[in-house]
């Protein structure tokens, strides 16, 4: 039976959400296995959101934000980076492969990069198979 992963992408209002828009404007194609949740800043992404997504059955979570140094709120992406690092450890302890969580910086002009990042991440999650240990590809 075919299986499509469910992947949650957090995108910040100023950079990576703009990158997603730019990917659209330029028609850069990527797999439809992702859903974007817009936040004002990647620093708004609570580790609890990530855990909740996995708990509800998500197969992957990708946090995206402005390139380091470009944050609209000075250093929110550095905060996001720290939290994601903390989550890598925690996910391991919870028996969730840490590769299922990703962190990427994408500017509002990088439509192609947005599409590439999503394509790569979806590919990775597909190779890992379903998070709940169910039927793989």
């Amino acid at each position: 039976m075919s299986w499509d992963p469910q992947i949650l992408v957090f995108a910040c209002n100023w950079c990576s959400y703009g990158g997603a828009d730019a990917a659209g404007v330029s028609r850069f194609q990527y797999p439809p296995d992702v859903q974007i949740v817009r936040v004002m800043c990647s620093g708004r992404v609570d580790p609890g959101f990530v855990l909740r997504a996995f708990n509800k059955g998500a197969d992957g979570v990708l946090v995206t934000g402005c390139h380091l140094g470009d944050c609209h709120y000075q250093d929110g992406n550095y905060k996001a980076e720290k939290r994601v690092e903390m989550l890598y450890t925690l996910l391991g302890q919870l028996g969730i492969q840490s590769e299922r969580l990703g962190l990427e910086w994408i500017s509002a002009a990088e439509g192609q990069r947005f599409a590439n990042v999503i394509t790569d991440f979806v590919g990775k999650i597909r190779r890992l198979g379903p998070a709940n240990g169910g039927e793989g590809p």
């Binding site: 469910q6 949650l8 859903q35 949740v37 936040v39 004002m40 800043c41 620093g43 708004r44 992404v45 609570d46 580790p47 609890g48 959101f49 909740r52 997504a53 509800k56 998500a58 609209h72 709120y73 929110g76 905060k79 939290r83």
Partner: peptide, 30 residues
């Protein structure tokens, strides 16, 4: 920016328009 909301250990901080409950509901709905 919401950095304080994430940092608060007792969930006392709320970001209006981007409340925890709203983002959680979005995740659940997904």
């Amino acid at each position: 920016c919401g950095a304080c909301v994430v940092e608060c250990p007792t969930k006392a901080m709320i970001l209006k328009g981007f409340k925890d409950e709203q983002i959680e509901a979005q995740i659940d709905a997904m």
